[in-house]
Nucleic acid binder design. Structure first.
Lengths: 204, 204
DNA sequence: TGTACCACTGACTGACCAGTCAATCAGGAA
DNA sequence: TTCCTGATTGACTGGTCAGTCAGTGGTACA
């Protein structure tokens, strides 16, 4: 594919993000995407085989980066708390960098149990499994207590992050930088304390 | 409305739950609901003004019961940990009692930021506010630490619960009774420990 | 200059489906 | 028995929209 063609494809993908974020996947028309991209209707079908495939592409592009980030973090020799902080940080920074894309991924894929959620279920589970692996290792090392299963811990952790993001997504006002940072530490602080074998003491 | 009419209406609502759970709101047809209920197409429109209104009704029926349960729990003089256990228990028992309804509410309303989520945003926020109120009170009493804002604590708590439910919803196999009970205590155990001022010691 | 190959266009089609409505039916009141 | 009211039926309509396709234009290479 020529450079110009690659850019056109990107143009359509970026337009789709804005349209999906604004109107939702089910309620938008392909012509809305074409209009937003300033491109003829038919061109969308030159680059993508269907409306679904556009969403698939957007999801996979981003999710694969996240899976890589999780795997890389897992391989590092950071403390488990720091690993979880890195992952929460990655997701929240993704939101900071492109809130519309994160909105689309969460609302239209991650949380859509019927349609796209099913298609990408394995990919989504890979993320949970990665987090669970970090917790399991921390338990084996005696840093996290064993009463909480790693699978549950991963769900609690990821669920908290996603719920915070969802709160921002629903919010009409923009989120302050400081709140993004505060959320990272609050999530990790709360969950890790809940998981830790010996809870850290709290300064008064 | 006569008793017979009320029962017909109920018949349609129950059929809609099964259809929405199976096919999703957007991808099912009103005729699917009528067929599932064993009723003529037009009758659906005798009892409901639109397809949306059926979903609205299902959501509000259940959500209002939950808001009441939260408010009632809040009014009790239980310890904050026990209040949160009661709420997690209520939601998980709702899933036990009618997993299809909970699937519909979570997938089609609670997590659908674009369409129905927006319509019912205030109702959804009422639930978070109720939970946040419990946390705030516990902080004022010195039982929970003040570093974590009540709003965030509510999101982490509710997010964990919803994520666990979502895991079950996605699961093809039925969930064992023991797992439902174990989830209740793991969620509350993890989150409360994360929120508590003095973390409980863990028996080895 | 010719020609081959793309990117690109947008009118069109075929399918689908929410919601309507005129007709029928059931049962209670007069 | 007749009439009235509300429940019930399902064929039909109008609008929407994903995806198609026949054609145009631009460019690189022979």
């Amino acid at each position: 594919m020529t450079t110009a063609a690659t850019e056109k494809r990107r143009l359509i993908l970026d337009a789709a993000v804005r349209v999906f974020a604004r109107q939702g996947f089910h309620t938008c028309r392909v012509s809305d995407i074409a209009d937003e991209a300033g491109v003829a209707y038919g061109l969308v079908y030159h680059y993508f085989s269907s409306k679904e495939q556009i969403l698939d592409t957007l999801f996979l592009e981003r999710w694969d980066v996240m899976l890589q980030a999780i795997a890389e973090t897992d391989r590092s020799d950071l403390a488990p708390e720091e690993k979880l902080l890195a992952i929460a940080g990655f997701i929240i920074d993704s939101y900071r960098h492109d809130p519309e894309l994160m909105k689309v991924i969460i609302v239209e894929v991650t949380r859509a149990a019927n349609t796209f959620g099913l298609t990408h279920l394995d990919k989504i589970r890979d993320a949970y499994a990665g987090i669970a692996g970090i917790v399991a290792k921390a338990q084996a090392d005696g840093r996290f207590r064993a009463e909480i299963t790693p699978e549950f811990a991963a769900q609690a952790f990821y669920g908290s992050v996603e719920q915070v993001l969802t709160g921002w997504i629903f919010d009409s006002s923009a989120v302050a930088e400081t709140e993004l940072e505060r959320a990272k530490t609050m999530i990790v602080d709360t969950i890790c304390r809940g998981l830790a074998r010996t809870a850290a003491s709290t300064p008064d």
